[in-house]
Design a protein around this nucleic acid. Structure first.
Lengths: 205, 205
DNA sequence: CCCCAAAGCAAGCAGGTGCTTGCATACAAC
DNA sequence: GTTGTATGCAAGCACCTGCTTGCTTTGGGG
């Protein structure tokens, strides 16, 4: 029985934190949302900080399932799929990301939520891109790395910024990932495929 | 005499807000930082909300001075300068941006801080880029717009994300803007100039 | 010298917040 | 049936927070 209350509290904590931030997430509120008594919260987690910390640790692992293949095949499709799932995932936890980034100075233990959600993906992308178009010089590799960072940044900014300044991002929302990838591929020297274009025209996913 | 206290309070409010967010910015703390009595705060602004709102309105106007020229000349240099100043400006207010984005749901009146700081710049960039390489088709224009959004997003993400996940952004920090612009220009079909390369090599600004 | 606006100071109030204590209740195992 | 564990409930404590009140101090203008 203990485990049920624990999970309910963890979930409620994450939700209330996303809505109201650390200071705004009162223990009374969390307990109410979880449907358990406030005292139970302290009995199970000891303190508000510990509950929140544990709750944040649970946010990421359910994360992005899509990975780039080890050997590139249909580059455009693979990248679009990767970017889309990455974007969708980050949009899903965008409020948590925003709050965590804002309160990092006060609660450094939450750095991992962001760091783990971002760093590995960039590396993965760079590895993949390097196979698609192996850089010839150091400067070339540097530019490729920058281009990867830009694609990654675009997805990140779109995920957390679109509801704030919609005009700053490509429309429609559902095609944004594809458009980012097309620009990225064009940089790599690959023309968007006819398949991609036709799929786009008919609006098929 | 009144004006002095007002300004001190506005400045202190912005600083404390950046440090601690809306809830964390207590009137006692703001007054302390401003070096005035807490009662004075309420006499001059009526309430905490009003003080904070007024303080936020003062953040942006001191903003980015650099504008792209109406007619492109040295494209690379102009874009690098524009991006650098834009990036520097956003880095300067990055904590305020993060907090504002996180607390937008609770305090919608602060939306303008972000919106005004971002939307116009993207438009400006697209106008400029359209002159450099006039798009031939609608699809072409769409891609150009996306590329502009990506450059803008990269600058945005760099400004607010670099201290959180440094590994996700180009090194060194001081050359980041230039690198973004180089990738962007390469997309436009313009090779980075020898001047840019040599400047880069010697590390001249 | 007096006046008045701006600011300080001390105190407090009502409500919220993290956390504790003491006790009652349910329910499963032995 | 007894024991033990998990949970609920009521109350409260110490502290913080936005905001108010009543009073004194200060300093420049008439």
């Amino acid at each position: 029985m203990s485990i049920v209350s624990r999970d309910k509290l963890l979930e409620a904590a994450a939700q209330v934190f996303a809505e109201s931030g650390f200071r705004g997430a009162t223990t009374r509120r969390i307990a109410e949302v979880a449907g358990v008594n406030e005292v139970t919260l302290f009995r199970l987690f000891g303190s508000k900080s510990q509950l929140l910390t544990e709750a944040m640790a649970c946010v990421h692992p359910q994360g992005c399932v899509c990975a780039l293949p080890a050997q590139p095949g249909d580059v455009e499709q693979e990248l679009v799929e990767w970017s889309s799932s990455h974007l969708a995932f980050m949009r899903g936890i965008s409020t948590v990301i925003r709050r965590t980034m804002a309160e990092l100075d006060e609660h450094p233990e939450m750095r991992s939520v962001i760091a783990e959600a971002k760093a590995p993906y960039l590396h993965q992308l760079f590895e993949y891109a390097s196979k698609v178009r192996p850089p010839e010089t150091a400067a070339d590799a540097d530019m490729l790395r920058t281009a990867c960072a830009m694609l990654s940044s675009s997805i990140f900014a779109d995920a957390i910024g679109r509801d704030v300044v919609p005009a700053a991002y490509p429309e429609p929302e559902s095609e944004a990932a594809r458009k980012y990838v097309e620009v990225f591929l064009s940089f790599l020297g690959i023309q968007p495929s006819a398949a991609g274009a036709s799929r786009r025209a008919v609006g098929v996913k």
